[in-house]
């Protein structure tokens, strides 16, 4: 019973965070609620005995992705919303209808499927770290190395794309001379 209550509390936190993230007006509040949703999900993973995934979710999503989002908001002055500008794009009725359709398509098979289990299998063994390590370096070594390559490429690509290149076309699109909050001088 305690695990059920934990699950419902965490699920409520996650859903509330997600809905708030998509519907608030102030974009920094949206990012903070999204970080709360990620943390709620991390709690759910921990409750499902997936320790490594839960901790990695905290480390990566709350500790890195949320901070990246916040930095981008501040670098693009996204927090200064012009008064009177619409929050939601035109054609929102279609979008809403399609997302409702997606929800229905995902939920109906779940609720009507006869084969879903009701109780968790008891085959989860305690020293899971060892097994994850063995799988990563054994069976999944190709995805591991490819992910390493992908992350390196993403890192270099992100730096190159976001870099302020003062080329001949520079002054036309020059950045305004206020404080470049967060821009690391060492990157120039």
């Amino acid at each position: 019973m305690p695990s059920d209550i934990t699950f419902y509390l965490l699920a409520a936190l996650t859903l509330a965070g997600a809905v708030a993230a998509m519907s608030l007006r102030n974009i920094v509040h949206c990012v903070l609620c999204a970080a709360g949703a990620f943390a709620g999900l991390a709690g759910i993973y921990l409750q499902l005995n997936a320790e490594f995934v839960g901790v990695a979710q905290l480390l990566v999503y709350v500790g890195a992705v949320a901070i990246l989002l916040v930095f981008t908001i501040l670098l693009t002055h996204g927090a200064d919303v012009k008064l009177g500008s619409a929050l939601i794009s035109s054609g929102w009725k279609t979008g809403l209808a399609i997302s409702a359709l997606v929800l229905v398509c995902l939920v109906v098979p779940v609720l009507t499927s006869p084969g879903l289990r009701h109780e968790a299998a008891s085959g989860v063994v305690a020293p899971m770290m060892q097994k994850i390590g063995e799988q990563l370096m054994g069976q999944c070594v190709l995805p591991l190395e490819t992910t390493g390559l992908l992350l390196t490429a993403a890192l270099l690509g992100a730096v190159v794309i976001a870099m302020n290149d003062k080329t001949a076309a520079g002054p036309k699109t020059g950045v305004p001379p206020n404080h470049e909050a967060g821009k690391e001088p060492g990157l120039r």
Binding site: A11, T14, A18, M22, I88, I98, V102
Partner: peptide, 23 residues
């Protein structure tokens, strides 16, 4: 699975409806 479906549709709705690219 229902929680996951709800999260997915909320994320989808946000991605389709909001005007700010960060959202």
């Amino acid at each position: 699975l229902v929680l996951s479906a709800l999260l997915f549709s909320v994320g989808f709705a946000g991605a389709v409806l909001r005007r700010n690219v960060i959202l």
